[in-house]
C-alpha cells in the first residue's frame, strides 16, 4: 500500500463507519427507550430521513465546492429564505395567477435565477475587492436576511399550489421527490468536481493558490462561478422544500449555514481548502440527520441534539488532526 493510503482510507471511510455506528446505537437504544414501538431502522423511517436530509444536503454539495476552493459562504441560509419568498410570492402575481397551476414552473425559474444572482454578487465582490469570503458572505448573510424582512415584515409569505404539492409529495421508485433532487445534485456535483476541468481547478486553487495562478488559472472568475453554483443550489433547496410546505417565515433558514458547514467538515473537507469529497459530504449530511432523528427517537429534546452534535464535531476534528499530524515532523511552538 502506498504511503498515505491508509490514512486517506480512514478519512474517507470514517464517516460511513460513524453512520453504521449511529444506526446500530439507535436501533438498540430504541428498543429500550423509544416511546413508539416502531424500530428505528424501519423502512418508512429511513425514507423520511433521506427526504429530510435534502434541504441541507443540496446546499452542502455546493458548500463542499466552495470550501475545497478555499472559501466559505455564510449567506446560504439567507439566500434560501429569499428564494423561498420569491418562489411563493411570485405565484400570486396577477399575470402568474392568470397562467393557472403550471405557473409554478416560471416561479421556479424566478427563484433559481434569484439564487444565481445573489451568488454572483457574492462572487463578484470576493473577486474584485479581494476581501476574504468569510467577511463578504457574513455581510451578505445580514443583508439578504434584511431583504427577506423588508419583503413582508414579520409575516409569513404563503401560497399553496396543489399541483406543486402533489409533485413534491410524489414518490418515484419508492423515493420522495426531495430525495431524488438530493441524489441528482450529489451525482452532478460529484461529476463536476471529479470529471471536469473546472472542478479539478477548484482543488488546485484551494491547495496551492500561487501554483494555480502561475499555471494561468484565472482564480477570480473561477471563484465567482462557484458562488453562483452555491447560490443556485441554495435556491434549489428552497424550491424543493417550499413546494411542499407552501409557507415561509422570514426567519426560515437561519443557522442553516452552520449546520451545512458542520456536515461538510464532518465529511472530511478541510477548512483551509484543497481537500474534500462530495460523497463524504453526503455521509456528513446523513450522519447529522440520523443523529437528530435518532435522538428524537429515543426521546431526547432539541437542546440535547445540539449539544451532542457540537461535541461530536470537535471530537471528529481532533481525531482527524491526530491522524494527519502523525508521521509529519511536529515543530513545537
Amino acid at each position: 500500500m502506498a504511503p498515505g493510503t491508509w490514512s486517506t482510507f480512514l478519512r474517507r471511510g470514517a464517516i460511513w463507519a460513524f453512520i453504521a455506528l449511529e444506526l446500530a446505537f439507535f436501533s438498540i437504544a430504541g428498543e429500550f427507550l423509544s416511546v413508539s414501538d416502531k424500530a428505528f431502522m424501519n423502512w418508512d423511517n429511513m425514507l423520511l430521513l433521506l427526504k429530510q436530509s435534502a434541504p441541507l444536503g443540496i446546499i452542502a454539495m455546493g458548500m463542499t465546492l466552495i470550501m475545497v476552493n478555499g472559501n466559505i459562504d455564510l449567506s446560504v441560509g439567507a439566500i434560501f429564505a429569499l428564494a423561498a419568498v420569491i418562489l411563493l410570492d411570485s405565484m400570486t402575481w396577477p399575470f402568474m395567477a392568470a397562467m393557472g397551476d403550471w405557473s409554478f414552473l416560471l416561479a421556479w425559474v424566478f427563484a433559481l435565477l434569484a439564487g444565481v444572482a445573489l451568488g454572483a454578487l457574492n462572487g463578484f465582490l470576493v473577486w474584485k475587492t479581494g476581501v476574504d469570503a468569510f467577511i463578504i458572505t457574513l455581510g451578505a448573510m445580514l443583508g439578504f436576511r434584511g431583504l427577506v424582512f423588508m419583503y413582508n415584515g414579520e409575516n409569513p409569505t404563503s401560497h399553496l399550489n396543489w399541483t406543486l404539492v402533489d409533485f413534491a409529495e410524489a414518490q418515484f421508485l419508492g423515493l420522495h421527490t426531495a430525495t431524488w433532487f438530493l441524489l441528482v445534485v450529489t451525482a452532478g456535483m460529484w461529476w463536476l468536481m471529479n470529471r471536469t476541468v473546472h472542478g479539478r481547478n477548484a482543488y488546485a486553487i484551494g491547495d496551492n493558490r500561487e501554483a494555480a495562478v502561475n499555471a494561468g488559472i484565472r482564480v477570480g472568475p473561477h471563484m465567482m462561478i462557484n458562488f453562483m453554483i452555491i447560490g443556485f443550489l441554495a435556491a434549489l433547496s428552497a424550491v424543493v422544500f417550499y413546494s411542499e410546505s407552501g409557507s415561509v417565515n422570514p426567519n426560515d433558514g437561519m443557522l442553516y449555514e452552520l449546520w451545512i458547514i458542520t456536515a461538510v467538515v464532518l465529511g472530511g473537507t478541510k477548512l483551509t481548502g484543497g481537500s474534500g469529497s462530495i460523497i463524504s459530504t453526503l455521509g456528513g449530511v446523513l450522519a447529522i440527520q440520523i443523529l437528530r432523528r435518532g435522538l428524537n427517537h429515543i426521546g431526547a429534546d432539541t437542546s440535547t441534539v445540539n449539544l451532542v452534535i457540537g461535541l461530536i464535531l470537535i471530537a471528529v476534528l481532533f481525531l482527524d488532526r491526530q491522524l494527519n499530524v502523525k508521521g509529519k515532523e511536529a515543530l513545537r511552538i
Partner: peptide, 18 residues
Amino acid sequence: LSLAEELSVAENIYLGEL
C-alpha cells in the same frame, strides 16, 4: 516546489492546461 499536494502527478504537470 510549487505543487498542489492533493492532486495527481498528471494534474500538477498540466495544471492550467488540462
